[in-house]
């Protein structure tokens, strides 16, 4: 009995802290609405690529029809909007300016602070993304579709899982901040395979087989291509993809935790 009590107490505490972090970060984000709008617009790449793919003759040669491509890239646009991660930049800033020290004194792992600031940002992004989608569908009325409720729910869950995995990946690389003070330069390197292997600029169907196989060994297609195809209502092995996504998540959690412990020992509290 007491064990159950303790557990419910812990869960309550967790929920209370999450809510507090979320609401404080949300009000912070609302202050920077204009900035968030700009971030959202800067995620336009899939829509630009949609333009090229629709015009290009290669889509016919690969028997990818235009409606399929349109839905895929519009979904990729949505998925990208809600899987945006910038933890490396803010972690480096906090580390260099000594803000990490007070965070470490609090009885909560700094990880959650960054995590909830991302979640809060996603919520403040929703209206902007909706306006952009409205513009897209006005210029391409034939492209409009709406998934049924169950489909929508599982897609949202997939997008959220993809976000978590991408966040964990960037969190792992943020740990490099403990060893060098120019870690955010590495973020640019991390963006390269994401850009070209995730299915952001080209659907995986268009890849030559060898490169497609290679891409599927990296986490990137599961972060973007999988949730996009799910949202677009295209045929995909849901269980297998979710399993691989979770497996990546697990590996990244373990590695992230290990390097966090290792890095903390080296933390010198710069600026404090």
């Amino acid at each position: 009995m007491s064990r159950i009590n303790l557990m419910s107490k812990n869960i309550k505490r967790f929920l209370r802290i999450s809510f507090a972090l979320f609401s404080s970060q949300y009000s912070l984000m609302i202050e920077y609405r204009a900035e968030i709008a700009l971030w959202a617009i800067s995620g336009m790449l899939p829509l630009i690529m949609l333009g090229i793919w629709r015009e290009s003759g290669i889509s016919l040669a690969l028997s990818l029809n235009k409606d399929w491509l349109t839905r895929y890239f519009i979904s990729a646009f949505i998925v990208r909007q809600f899987t945006a991660v910038w933890v490396m930049v803010s972690f480096e800033e906090d580390n260099l300016e000594g803000r990490l020290s007070p965070y470490l004194l609090q009885p909560i792992m700094p990880f959650w602070r960054y995590f909830f600031s991302h979640i809060a940002e996603q919520f403040s992004r929703i209206p902007i993304v909706l306006i952009m989608l409205l513009l897209v569908f006005i210029s391409m009325p034939g492209a409009f579709w709406f998934p049924d409720f169950g489909h929508l729910m599982i897609s949202i869950f997939a997008i959220f899982s993809a976000f978590c995995v991408r966040f964990l990946l960037h969190w792992l690389f943020s740990m490099i901040c403990f060893w060098t003070d120019r870690a955010s330069a590495l973020e640019r390197l991390l963006l390269i395979p994401y850009l070209f292997l995730s299915g952001l600029v080209a659907p995986l169907e268009a890849f030559p087989d060898s490169i497609k196989t290679f891409a599927l060994f990296t986490p990137f297609p599961y972060i973007l291509s999988f949730p996009s195809r799910l949202l677009a209502g295209q045929e995909i092995n849901i269980i297998k993809n979710f399993l691989i996504l979770f497996l990546w998540g697990l590996v990244l959690i373990l590695l992230g935790h290990y390097f966090w412990k290792l890095g903390l020992k080296r933390y010198s509290g710069m600026g404090a």
Partner: peptide
Amino acid sequence: GNLIGSLFTLSLFYGPNTN
């Protein structure tokens, strides 16, 4: 990395009869 990626993406649009 960016160069290889861009060349690769560009090459996807070029088939025997497409450009």
